[in-house]
Design a protein around this nucleic acid. Structure first.
Length: 897
RNA sequence: GCGCAGUUAGCUCAGCGGUAGAGCGCCUCUCUUACACAGAGGAUGUCACAGGUUCAAAUCCUGUACUGCGCACCA
């Protein structure tokens, strides 16, 4: 006999291995079948998988396994993402531990190391996906990487084609600069956070001595780059003063006071200092008035282009010193506490410096419009649907996308410059490497994947590649078709594109999903998927975001080690609803583990009765009430589960099966079957149990693949037909329901429950066989109970069940009411009369309340006049039912007096 | 500031017009040869608040309050 408790570890390892070795998850174009395609959101190669990955990949796996069992040509395409800044940061952290920076290594050596890291980390991630039970073919020939050769070809094609269409351009714009990461970022890689700060009021005096203007600012240090002060054109306070010059404090520069609609009259003093090089609004004002952009903060975050005193200071230090100097000069009018929103780098949490810089951009408006239309007209559908609006609104307000990053790890921008023709447009580092490019100062690009043999203008051969790399999302945007070899016209691309559903967290809806939709339409002519399933974030049990600093991180691998993969998957699926965030804890997993153990024990139970030498059982099936009932219940559970799957309601789909197995198959049917397994019906009953249980295993397989595959493999030899692997089996078809067995069975179940309750409350020892009497004035009901007497005797431990229309309550007995029946349980000794009275009185009260409610409604003319007939009938039936119960209860209570 | 979600049993959440539900936790009994990772029984709720619609509201509408999340140039 097997152990009482299931040990998932060896079982999960065995099947994970077998599935990969047999290559059961590989797919090939098959014109006879409809494909079901999912591309994995490729995990960044930044370390181990976390709980979010566990959720994301389990969701996909459930969908893919389910569709595979429904007969679709299922293909879930695996891969990893090079992860741009995120990965570079990981590398830099490791270097820091060695006391080095990437500059100590140089670009080439740094990239060599990162590729080595990719080999290591990429494999770790694939191993972890395998552990999660993902039905991904993880053999090397099937795994993609966003920076492998084929994907590099896709990225180049994307760049070239957008460049040719003039959708990629280079220009000087306000961008978000992270001084820690040392690169530009796109707008959506910036997070906003409220921060306590101060609002400083600074006085700028007019050149002509006619007083002054006071500006309010949260960033006094940027005043060194001011090129104007602006007020609203209709602000009375500044009537006649605009156009005059102001003396910029701490410098010898003069700046104009000008009028601009962008200034809000109500805020502060109504006058705003204008620093076009370091503030987005100021940049716009500057553009409108032709102001000069004076960059006083360097890419390193240090003061520059300013009086020597401040040069080289970091922003914080400069702020402190400047405030002191202004105060000393009597120009600081006041300082107030102020809370405002600051920009932070989503990768390293450092403050972002907005600054003007020449970068590569993609023009987005024209790309966004068809993507928004696809969402509007339903070509791309969202689950939950509430994401459609934010999606289309974001596309509607889209800004151009800054795609160049001043880092090393990534797809290098395929632009080359001739050293002699580009002249002053090329800037070099101390080491003589090309460090920055300026088209404004004369750099001329040649777009090419490989180094061009010669400069098309002068024929020179000294060409240098652009030092920047592309935003990591630039390659991710192509993922649903680059994985199939685009721009090559492969047969995979033709068969699998567009994919079926994209499953991802809502936090990358704009960063990734929107861009995939745009590039899919642009390059393939169709959106890359028709459905988007957006899930929430896995949080700790209190709903807090998991983070290393809070110490509340739950590691999926630890959970798997402790409870098994199936248990973790089960509990994740039980909680992921409506795209909401998921509070997760050890406690939550235990329910999953217990269920897996329950299944395991059902199999153990069956094995006790199955012959030792496996052979298919008889094809005959039993047909008594319990058999018809359980068959009907299974059909219902399958139907509910299937319907829920169609709506992406995975918890409901799973729960329907869970409830069937536990509450019906185990708690009732299996108990009822026990004696029959020792009798002549043994093989037929066993056959039905095997049908139902293996059916449930199939239906549950997408959720808990390991235990179901394992149990199926042990039971398969007893089945007439069986597939080699459960995962290749067909998902069971719901059979017919509504044979009437349920109502009849439930009547008996209610009687059993009543007897059990009486036993428990009057402390009749659980093992003791008792005598029970049941009376009813309804002969048909009595007949039904007579037929089902065996069930009652078995499950309520009754050795003698007396039935009759005129049965009287025996003295020293406990009473209960169930449906049509008065049930009496004679007691050995004296009955605690007070307890019995209290129990019945409580029941009477409940019935009375119900009855009164029904009668009141039936007396209410507006109810009778308005409610649908069916509803009225229902209430009438309830009224008569409760009336009967009341009378019977009252009679019993009367007798007890 | 604008928008979107949420507010139901101690906890996590279902239910979304016709008698308040599940899982976990809690209490009582039971190690009955599938399972104590179990079985049987039990307790627990002005369904955030205020209005409205309706014969009937946890469920629909309006508003308020909190909570969370997006978006936003208020210096």
């Amino acid at each position: 006999m097997l152990s009482k408790v299931y040990d998932p570890k060896p079982v999960e390892a065995k099947w994970a291995e077998a599935w990969q070795a047999e290559r059961l998850f590989i797919s090939a174009p098959n014109p006879d079948r409809k494909p079901f395609v999912v591309v994995i959101p490729p995990p960044n190669i930044t370390g181990a998988l976390h709980m979010g990955h566990a959720l994301n990949n389990t969701l996909q796996d459930v969908l893919v396994r389910y569709q595979r069992m429904l007969g679709r040509e299922a293909y879930w395409v695996p891969g990893t993402d090079h992860g741009g800044i995120a990965t570079q940061n990981v590398m830099e952290k490791m270097l820091k531990a060695e006391g080095k920076t990437r500059h100590d290594l140089g670009r080439e050596e740094f990239l060599k190391r990162t590729w080595a890291w990719y080999a290591e980390c990429g494999n770790t991630i694939l191993g972890q996906l395998r552990k999660l039970g993902c039905s991904l073919d993880l053999n090397a020939d099937n795994v993609r990487f966003t920076m492998d050769d084929k994907r590099a070809a896709s990225v180049f094609e994307e760049f070239r084609s957008l460049w040719d269409k003039k959708l990629i351009y280079r220009g000087e714009r306000m961008i978000n600069w992270c001084t820690r990461c040392g690169t530009a970022l796109s707008d959506i890689e910036v997070e906003h956070e409220d921060e306590k700060s101060k609002l400083w009021h600074i006085r700028y005096a007019f050149e002509d001595g006619s007083g002054s203007v006071t500006v309010a600012t949260t960033r006094p240090e940027t005043m060194l780059g001011d090129t104007a002060v602006a007020v609203h054109p209709e602000d009375e306070r500044y009537k006649g003063k605009t156009g005059k010059k102001l003396k910029l404090p701490l410098t010898d520069r003069l700046i104009p006071l000008l009028a601009d609609e962008g200034v809000e009259k109500g805020f502060g003093t109504g006058a705003v200092k204008v620093t076009p090089a370091h503030d987005p609004l100021d940049f716009e004002i500057g553009q409108r008035h032709g102001l000069e952009n004076i960059r006083i903060i360097s890419y390193e975050g240090k003061m520059t282009n300013c009086p020597e005193k401040y040069a080289g200071l970091n922003v914080q230090a400069a702020r402190k010193l400047i405030v002191e100097d202004l105060n000393a000069a009597g120009l600081l009018e006041k300082e107030e506490h102020y809370k405002h929103s600051v920009s932070k780098c989503s990768r390293c949490n450092q403050h972002i410096e907005p600054l003007v810089s020449e970068q590569w951009f993609v023009k987005m408006k024209g790309l966004a419009a068809p993507a928004a239309a696809a969402a509007e007209n339903g070509d791309v559908k969202f689950y939950p649907p509430s994401w459609k609006k934010p999606f289309t609104e974001w596309l509607g307000n889209i800004q151009d996308w800054c795609i160049s990053r001043q880092i090393w790890w990534g797809h290098r921008i395929p632009a080359w410059y001739c050293r002699s023709c580009s002249g002053a447009g090329l800037k070099f580092s101390d080491k003589g490497e090309l460090s920055r490019v300026s088209f404004a100062q004369g750099a001329k690009p040649v777009i090419s994947f490989a180094k061009p043999a010669a400069c098309p203008d002068c024929g020179g051969t000294d060409l240098l590649q652009d030092p920047d790399v592309l935003d990591t999302w630039f390659s991710s945007a192509l993922w649903p078709f680059s994985v199939f070899g685009w721009p090559e016209k492969t047969k995979e691309l033709a068969y699998y594109y567009p994919t079926s559903v994209l499953v991802t967290g809502y936090e990358i809806l704009y960063l990734w999903v929107a861009r995939m939709v745009m590039s899919g339409i642009e390059h393939m002519g169709k959106p890359p998927f028709s459905q988007v399933y957006l899930h929430g974030i896995v949080r700790d049990k209190h709903g807090k975001k998991m983070s290393k600093s809070l110490g509340n991180v739950i590691d999926p691998l630890t959970m798997i080690e402790k409870y098994g993969t199936d248990a973790m998957r089960f509990s994740l699926m039980a909680q992921t609803l409506g795209g909401k965030d998921i509070p997760f804890s050890d406690d939550a997993i235990i329910g999953g583990r217990n269920f897996v153990n329950k299944l395991y024990n059902v199999a153990r139970f069956l094995q006790m009765y199955l012959p030792e030498t496996p052979a298919p059982l008889t094809a005959e099936r039993p047909g008594e009430l319990a058999d018809r009932w359980i068959t009907e219940r299974f059909a219902g559970a399958l139907a509910r589960s299937k319907a829920a799957m169609a709506e992406y309601d995975l918890p409901k789909a799973q729960d329907a099966l869970y409830a069937f197995v536990w509450d019906e198959l185990c708690d009732w049917y299996l108990e009822l079957a026990k004696p029959r397994l020792a009798g002549p019906d043994k093989e037929k009953v066993l056959g039905l149990m095997l049908d139902l249980f293996t059916g449930a295993l199939k239906a549950l397989h997408p959720f808990i693949p390991y235990i179901t595959e394992e149990l199926y493999s042990t039971l398969k030899p007893y089945l007439k037909t069986g597939e080699a692997f459960l995962l290749k089996a067909a998902w069971p078809e719901p059979g017919a329901a509504g044979t009437g067995a349920s109502a009849q069975m439930e009547e008996l179940m209610a009687v059993i429950t009543q007897i059990r309750a009486a036993r428990a409350q009057f402390e009749i020892p659980p093992g003791k066989q008792i005598k029970v009497l049941a009376a009813s004035s309804d002969p048909a009901a009595l007949e039904r109970l007579r037929t089902g007497a065996g069930y009652v005797k078995l499950l309520a431990k009754v050795e003698d069940l007396a039935l009759g229309a005129d049965i009287q309550k025996p003295p020293r007995s406990v009473s209960a009411i169930s449906g049509q029946f008065n049930i009496y349980v004679p007691m050995d000794g004296a009955v605690d009369l007070e307890k019995e009275k209290a129990r019945l009185a409580k029941e009477l009260e409940r019935v009375q309340r119900d009855s009164a409610q029904c009668l009141e409604r039936l007396r209410d003319p507006s109810f009778m006049g308005h409610a649908p007939a069916a509803e009225v009938e229902k209430i009438k039936a309830r009224a008569s039912d409760t009336q009967g119960k009341m009378e019977r209860l009252t009679a019993i209570l009367e007798e007890l007096k």
